[in-house]
Design a protein around this nucleic acid. Sequence first.
DNA 1: CCCACATGAGACATATTTGTCTCACACTGG
DNA 2: CCAGTGTGAGACAAATATGTCTCATGTGGG
Lengths: 192, 192
Amino acid sequence: MSHVGYSCLMALDRDHVLRSAAALLTRKSTATMDEVAKAAGISRATLHRHFAGRDALVRALEALGIAECEGAVSRARLDDGPAGEAVRRLVREIQPAAGLLAFLYGESQLWEGDRQNDGWQRLDARIGAVFQRGQRTGEFRIDLTPVWLTEALYGLIASCAWATLDGRVAARDFPTMVAELLLGGAVRREES
Amino acid sequence: MSHVGYSCLMALDRDHVLRSAAALLTRKSTATMDEVAKAAGISRATLHRHFAGRDALVRALEALGIAECEGAVSRARLDDGPAGEAVRRLVREIQPAAGLLAFLYGESQLWEGDRQNDGWQRLDARIGAVFQRGQRTGEFRIDLTPVWLTEALYGLIASCAWATLDGRVAARDFPTMVAELLLGGAVRREES
DNA sequence: CCCACATGAGACATATTTGTCTCACACTGG
DNA sequence: CCAGTGTGAGACAAATATGTCTCATGTGGG
């Protein structure tokens, strides 16, 4: 029964296509379906067999981005140890997905509609919780809301991803730049 | 000679159209020329008489954004007093233009090409200088480069502008949220 | 009053992208 | 060898946005 082999190959291809598309759209967010297909090394017809249309492709990339973030959040074990260290781990774990995140962050199509993926809400909750925890333990200042700190984290990740693509920031400095700037603002300053 | 009155009215209208377009495109970056025209209360034909095409409109918005930023930078007197206070003044002065900046920041069309407006380079230099000054005086930490701090400032402004549009951050808190987070990372912590 | 001119409305061609379809080709397993 | 299947190439229509044009209208100045 070749159907098994079929779906198996399709699944592998699908992931490859998705990652190629992410890499391309990170650099050129207005790339056409044809360019996406060429970047993945397949034809436009096959691309359409994987994703019904451009919208479906973007949605799939959104789902991938959410999944990558959730993986990073889990691996970072945000509930363990000092909140500051947890945030540092999170930034380090999320770096490989930073380009994809930057693309999604700028894809206003995903945010304008009233129906947006619940995954972001779940992520916001998990990430916001670590800031809240840091505030409760007195490690973080309380005059910046967890919601804003979460938003700022996304913003800094996207900014640094773009700066990295332009060569204004070295890729190896990404975790330091993002985490140190964010935490410098979030960590309560030591009393002098 | 009606040509005087003509150009005068055109100039006034042009500015009004530009600001309407900025307000609309901040909320819906994919708005069509027709929607932009309607938002400005004029017809598409008249809009085309002001701006040769969509590209010209975006370029004009870019020029407006640069001008607003340069005005804010000048009013903030970045060379006066402590660098931290200078940055706070800058953020306060730049808030009215934050929405426009957020739109421009997400308009990848402006950054992908090899020919980008020199205005941004001039602005980067002026803003980067205040971070550099803060580092020289020992007020700012030196492990975050002025280039990154400048980039992060733009990113946080855009993030906070979007969060404000969504109601996740109150508009009156904008200066505090952006400046406190950025400076908390930039200002060297007091020795404990 | 009259004329010049800016405007609005709309028609029209054009360009671009998208979505769908067909068909020939290559590969793979039986 | 051959049937099944995924793929690439390309044709095609449809949708959308854009740019250009014409013409009627209204208004303000001379």
